[in-house]
């Protein structure tokens, strides 16, 4: 096996890993895009909502006999989907109790202080969830492991039996679920009555109230959907990666990077944004030490936002 073939193989391997993890990141980003892109709510605690979803799925899997009934191949996925209604309710309640006090129609047009209240409030929620999670769940790593995560499909070998790419089955299935969920969400938003009212409320909240849409309820629903989508992505991630109560911090940056990259307000764009982050993360491992993988994402995030001057709402001049 030549030097070039080794290089090619590790590149293809990183590419494949990036595509698989990117699909999950994409789903995560779509969840945030529902909240940030469409409803203009800055949710700093999105990563911690995801962490909560991971733990809920973990306890459903281990604690409620799901593992016994469905076995360890199907069980994790059943647990992950059973977790969704809980996180939907959680998101709905958080919005109802807290977020609604600093959001809604009156803050949509505000640039400065309206958003700061959201940022700081959700930072508070994030701190409570992270540290509360540590109290409740402890800080040791857990995962919703499926045996599929330790086996792989082999693509190839190509080029004279030398180069082949391995696709981890657990990650592959997670990626397939991600794409399926996004297609379902797309249908929900574009084809149903609920989706129409969500889009209307996002597009022009004031006009929506005039045509009889309960905008506050639409926001709440969107918040809950966004929360559960991200939590679902977290659950899928947890079948391959162990997690802990502070896992949200790493992914909240991934999510914002993806949403910004995909273009604010575009749900499908957020998916591609997340995909790009996944690819960057995996491909960066070819040149940058493993331990700095997360630092790479932060730097990449900074590059994305800084290379677009004035931020994305920073339209100083057009509002004068």
């Amino acid at each position: 096996m030549t030097e070039g073939q080794i290089l090619l193989e590790s590149f293809l391997q990183a590419l494949a890993a990036g595509l698989l993890i990117g699909a999950i990141y994409g789903l995560m980003c779509v969840g945030l895009a529902m909240i940030f892109g469409i409803m203009r709510v800055i949710n700093f605690a999105q990563g911690d909502f995801m962490m909560l979803g991971m733990y809920v799925a973990f306890f459903i899997f281990t604690g409620f006999g799901i593992q016994g009934v469905f076995g360890s191949y199907v069980g994790p996925y059943v647990a992950i989907f059973l977790m969704v209604p809980f996180l939907f309710a959680f998101g709905y309640a958080i919005h109802r109790l807290l977020i609604t006090r600093v959001t809604g129609i009156r803050t949509v047009g505000m640039e400065g202080e309206g958003h700061y209240a959201q940022l700081v409030l959700t930072l508070g929620i994030a701190l409570v969830l992270q540290n509360g999670g540590q109290i409740l769940f402890g800080s040791q790593l857990v995962s919703i492991r499926t045996p599929l995560s330790s086996v792989a499909w082999e693509l190839g070998p190509f080029w004279g039996d030398f180069v082949s790419v391995f696709l981890n089955k657990g990650r592959g299935i997670a990626a397939i679920f991600s794409v399926a969920v996004i297609l379902g969400l797309w249908l929900l938003i574009s084809r149903t009555r609920l989706g129409r009212s969500l889009r209307a409320a996002a597009d022009n909240p004031e006009a929506s109230t005039y045509v009889g849409i309960d905008v506050d309820r639409a926001y709440r629903t969107a918040f809950a959907i966004g929360t559960s989508i991200t939590a679902l992505a977290g659950g899928l991630l947890a079948t391959n990666y162990p997690f802990h109560p502070f896992v949200g911090l790493e992914y909240v940056i991934v999510m914002y990077a993806g949403v910004v990259l995909g273009g604010i307000g575009s749900t499908i764009g957020a998916f591609w944004g997340g995909m790009a982050i996944g690819l960057v993360q995996q491909l960066s491992t070819l040149v940058i030490p493993m331990q700095l993988q997360n630092a790479t994402i932060f730097v990449f995030f900074l590059l994305i936002v800084v290379l677009r001057p004035q931020g994305f709402f920073g339209r100083i001049s057009e509002r004068t």
Partner: peptide
Amino acid sequence: FRLRGHYFALSMLAYPLAMLYVFEW
């Protein structure tokens, strides 16, 4: 400072977290 509002806040978050990993490394 080219960023404003919440982009500024989020970007500021990225600096210490990136440094955290660098110092661990």
